[in-house]
Amino acid sequence: MRAFRYESLPGRVVFGVDSALDVASEISGQRVLVLATPRGLPLARRLAQPLGDRVAGEFTAVREHVPVAVAEQAVACARSLGADCLLAIGGGSTVGTAKAIALELRLPIVAVPTTYAGSEMTPVWGMTSADGKRTGRSLDVLPSLVVYDPSLTMGLPRELTVTSAMNAMAHSVEGVYAAGANPISSLMAVESVRALASGLQAKDGLEARTSLLYGAYLAGAVFAVAGSGLHHKICHVLGGAYALPHAATHTVVLPHVAAFMDGPALAPIASALDALTAAEGLRALARRVEAPTSLVDIGFDPAKLAEAASLVAARVDVAEDAIRGLLAAAL
């Protein structure tokens, strides 16, 4: 066996049906800022209600890709309230906004995910501006507690369930060949892919949602340790430069990057999907669950292909012609 390093990140995870009902008892902060989207605010208020007057305020101006202007607004809100803890209830954008605050103010985050984004398990933050998407790593943004409650995902629409779960799968697929890949995280990656594929193809219900959330948790843990590679760099450029929906972009691009990166590292992923190659398995799964398979269908202008290839090539160690071919195949 080859030598490897595995870094176990700090943080606590609570997983189980109805576990979110007790989230208030896990919070020691006295000035809690609750973050949620307007749509998710009723749920957030219900879960935060036991905190009583320890809730210092709410922030609901959450936007996908965390625009810098929104991040600045959120930081100002937390600072003005004298917040000492952040309670983020929602998907990746909500957690991402909490991370923007934590990056600036060093406040602890308690995350209650309602999608399969996985951001809650990672020390990775990201923000977008006119210059595109900027990302970084800092333990200051890693949530100190994550509460996974499958019942909170029961109302997630099928279309969003599919793309969010495929986005999670991208963390695991890339995790087996990324720079920080190691035998421990690769084992988790394979288990994650199995759980996500099983949950997506099962009859919708609490058991399927539990499998999906379990897979997403593992995928986030893989991404946190193994890091990202070509796939995430492509998707960050496309999402930041062309305002494409985050999860759907990952869903469309994933099989094409898997084909480009095909090799021994991806063989366990292919096996988990019961396919000859990872790319073949991902394409077949996408067809079965009716996932989006075209960048054009999710809002990308094909006239921007050459420009997009140039933007991506500037950030990766891959020839621009190869990137253009990969993106063309995903149109």
Score class of each variant (00 low, 15 high):
V95K: 00
A100V: 09
A195R: 05
S25F: 00
G240D: 12
H232N: 11
G239T: 13
R315G: 10
A61R: 03
P10I: 10
P183W: 07
G180N: 14
A306Y: 01
L327R: 05
L33A: 00
G229F: 00
L276T: 12
S192L: 06
L103V: 07
C77T: 15
V312P: 09
E64V: 14
P123W: 02
P123Q: 07
D22M: 05
T210N: 06
A265F: 07
P245Y: 01
R2W: 01
L152Y: 07
F15V: 12
S8F: 11
G175T: 11
M188K: 07
T37G: 14
V95P: 04
L41M: 13
D321G: 02
L21H: 11
M1G: 14
A36H: 00
A243W: 03
M169W: 04
H246G: 14
P255K: 03
S28A: 02
C77Y: 07
K133W: 02
A309I: 05
G91T: 10
A100Q: 10
A179F: 13
T163F: 00
V95M: 12
C85F: 01
T97V: 12
V68I: 15
L107M: 05
A78G: 06
S93R: 02
T163G: 04
A208F: 13
G136F: 06
T115C: 05
H171F: 01
E191N: 06
Y242F: 15
H236R: 08
G90C: 06
L51G: 03
R209T: 13
I184S: 06
G180A: 08
A36N: 01
A3H: 08
S138H: 07
L156D: 15
R46F: 08
